[in-house]
Write a protein that binds this DNA or RNA. Structure first.
Lengths: 216, 216
DNA sequence: CACTTTAGACTGACTGGTCGGTTTATTGAT
DNA sequence: ATCAATAAACCGACCAGTCAGTCTAAAGTG
């Protein structure tokens, strides 16, 4: 059948992307040679430039793909929960799970995509803006529902994102501390920080997180 | 006199470093050409390589210098205050002031030093560790003094650092939101987050921050 | 069916511009 | 004269991207 061809073709494309995740995550954008992606993927330079316009586009494709994935999972998880506090809890858990499942992409997203000069910086800024806004919306809702006192949700949203990112970065790097510990501590800290009553926080289940690593 | 020479020499060195701050902050490490630093500093390639072993070392020198400066200012400010809550407040204020005063260095420190591959990544990790540890110490002390309930200070320390960094990055980039607003919100959020009683937080003065930009 | 043709997927040797670093010459202070 | 300081032409390794060509399988043809 004809899908044989395109299956094999798609497979090559995927092999290249997977290899790119591994190499980019490990060495960063500038220290990654296209030839290394070629070798790691077991394909050829021609194949790489057949499927992608250039090195930069491969990198951006990975980031965009992951950002979409994360946003999809977040909104999905949050929408399934009722009430601001539970929603926040779900979001936090989903974040840690997703970063844990796609550790390579997480490292690319959180570290390797930073400090790459103007061309990428705009993208990074825009992505952070996007996720901060997502958080801000949920916070605003919690305020509107009078679950928490009125606060400067914009600043808090950025602070939350930074807090989560930093802890995840640390974890991706060293494997420390374990996600369960992180979830508990971070959750308590962030929720307390916006004035959620202690009783509401204590009421949250100690949902275990499952961290399963996937290639892509 | 002999200081004429070394004065002039030191001046050249400084001009190079200042130029490097500007260019690195604006374009990032890899997009910065040594020739751009030469031009911006109004010196020459010979002078640059007379004072520094190479591009990378200039970059690292800037980061180390700033890290030392920040740490010095922080410990200084914290030591002058009495009591955990006030110390934290002082630290936060000092952070924002210092980042504000040295905006170029702040951008290099927080953004441009990230995602540069293994050679720099270790340095970055070590720096974050260092500052997180500083925070952790103060938090531990606050716990020991029973000002706050026992918490996982390690995780909280990283979360705090991430929160501060992200907000500062945003501010360095867009100029938004104003530091005063940031200090108030961040302070309340972080202190609440570790269980500081609302009354203690309210008791803190609304100390105005002065943000004066300096070249270096 | 045998055969040519076409198209898509892929290969890897090659290239040409770029840029960190070096060298050599010059200046100027003591 | 001597030597630190500076200038700027120069070098060459490096590497993203190119391209002429190969291979395989499907489509067209008689």
């Amino acid at each position: 059948m004809q899908s044989d061809i395109s299956d094999k073709a798609k497979a090559t494309r995927k092999r290249i992307l997977d290899a790119a995740i591994r190499v980019f995550a490990h060495k960063g954008f500038h220290d990654t040679r296209v030839d290394e992606i070629v070798e790691e993927s077991g394909s050829s330079k021609g194949a790489v430039y057949f499927y992608f316009p250039g090195k930069q586009q491969i990198f951006l494709a990975l980031i965009d793909e992951f950002a979409d994935l994360l946003e999809r999972r977040l909104t999905e998880a949050v929408d399934q929960e009722q009430g601001g506090v539970r929603k926040v809890n779900a979001a936090l858990k989903t974040c840690l799970e997703t970063f844990g499942r796609y550790r390579g992409l997480a490292k690319i997203f959180l570290i390797q995509a930073v400090g790459l000069g103007a061309a990428f910086e705009e993208k990074r800024s825009e992505l952070h803006q996007r996720f901060a806004n997502l958080i801000k919306c949920y916070l605003d809702q919690a305020v509107a529902d009078e679950e928490i006192p009125p606060i400067d949700t914009e600043v808090v949203a950025f602070a939350w994102m930074g807090a989560i990112n930093e802890v995840v970065i640390r974890w991706v790097h060293t494997g420390e501390p374990e996600p369960a510990r992180v979830l508990l501590t971070l959750r308590a800290m962030l929720l307390r920080g916006i004035g959620v009553p202690e009783t509401d926080i204590a009421g949250l289940a100690i949902t275990p997180i499952e961290i399963v690593e996937k290639s892509s």
